[in-house]
Write a protein that binds this DNA or RNA. Structure first.
Lengths: 228, 228
DNA sequence: TGACACAGCCCTGAATACAATTTCGCATAC
DNA sequence: GTATGCGAAATTGTATTCAGGGCTGTGTCA
């Protein structure tokens, strides 16, 4: 077997630390506003502080952590910040879906249709984690059709940064999500960019009340996790 | 005086390294595709490799450097990548100007008008560096009016990543730039979002021929810098 | 009993040390 | 003259060490 160093993971120690931490942050293994203890975390990951800090610095640059003068910590669930994230995502998703409408091939649209069909079948019984995966799959395919790596990466970053809230908001939106995905797909197949944009605008959480409710639910969720 | 460590610079060693490197990258002190020599660079900055590498990792996360399995290097002037950057910037600037049109106060618009007036007076004789500063000032004010830190930061990052090409394209566009800024401002003052977007779309380099010409000119510029 | 002072521990930021790999140069053989 | 192989230098990635500050906890004094 081609394992150069330790077990199956790829890349350098700092890259593995980065991947592991990103995963844990998305899964809310750390509380909002929590301070990162470098020695403890390094011990957990069984690495030294040097590659750990390199990973932490990357995560700061991505907005998944913040640099508090002395030490790193998890971003707060700041209301305005979450609003901004949703708004930014909304705008970029709309631009992306327009480009996808122009550039996606019929084959890609057929594949997306197939994917959506399977998603809708799977959706009613799927876990929220799985729902998020499916959601990411749908939006990711559209982003790929836009043929723009920069927009794709930007969207991916925004999604990372709102992962918890998105997770929260997904519960109780199973059917809505799938049917809205269906609408978007129909407009894409009809090559009606304006309609696709409108459907996307409707799809993405954009009413402040809804976002605020998700934030509050997220607080509850997070503190439940930390206690129970 | 409140100097905690060395001379007047603020923040930690790695933060100063980050700021210095970002500055040098924007000024094209490194060639596209150039490999970074850590020991040499650390010696230049008179710091050790540890904070230097932390800064390099942040720059990688921002797309100002790339991680080549072993070591870091400056991104290539890849044609598709530059197209994508311009397209992404175009879309986000358009979304931003629409929000600014809705949210900017009359006072802010008056201030922007004043800024533009001074810019137009200064423009004919200004250096390209100064022109870029003025351009950043104009777009930055619009981004501030959009009241969205995430979009603002995203735009700032994209601008960093296309700084060289933007610099190149600016020369020979003095009057055009200023008059297009004027158009955008007029539509903002009229609160006509669609017209402002159209003007912005026209303003930002979006024809592939133009971008390609800028890329080629950038190659010439860069290699002139490295030789002469 | 409460507030303040001090000592010791803990934590971060940076430098240095170390190991592994790659690259470069030179010499030798064909 | 060119290709090849070996060895040394250089370079990166990671661990360890060191120094400075901040926090905590306790003891003492009012």
């Amino acid at each position: 077997m081609p394992s150069t160093k330790k077990d199956g993971k790829d890349g350098s120690t700092s890259q593995r630390a980065y991947a592991a931490l990103r995963e844990q942050l998305l899964r809310s293994k750390f509380l909002p506003n929590q301070k990162i203890n470098e020695v403890a975390l390094a011990a957990t990951l069984e690495i030294s502080r040097t590659p750990l800090r390199e990973a932490l610095n990357r995560l700061v640059a991505e907005g998944l952590l913040v640099d508090r003068g002395r030490g790193f910590s998890v971003p707060d669930l700041d209301q305005k910040r979450v609003f901004d994230l949703f708004e930014a995502r909304l705008e970029i998703e709309c631009a992306t879906v327009r480009l996808a409408c122009e550039r996606g091939t019929d084959e890609e649209l057929a594949e997306l249709s197939e994917f959506l069909k399977e998603s809708m079948a799977e959706s009613p019984d799927a876990s929220v984690d799985r729902l998020i995966e499916l959601d990411i799959g749908f939006h990711g395919r559209i982003a790929a059709m836009a043929r723009n790596k920069v927009l794709q990466q930007t969207l991916s970053n925004l999604n990372d940064r709102m992962h918890l809230i998105r997770w929260i908001a997904m519960e109780g939106r199973r059917e809505r999500t799938q049917s809205q995905h269906h609408d978007i797909l129909q407009h894409l197949c009809a090559r009606d960019a304006d309609a696709a944009i409108a459907a996307m605008r409707e799809h993405i959480l954009h009413r402040n009340d809804d976002i605020l409710a998700a934030i509050k639910a997220a607080y509850g969720h997070v503190y439940t996790l930390s206690n129970g």
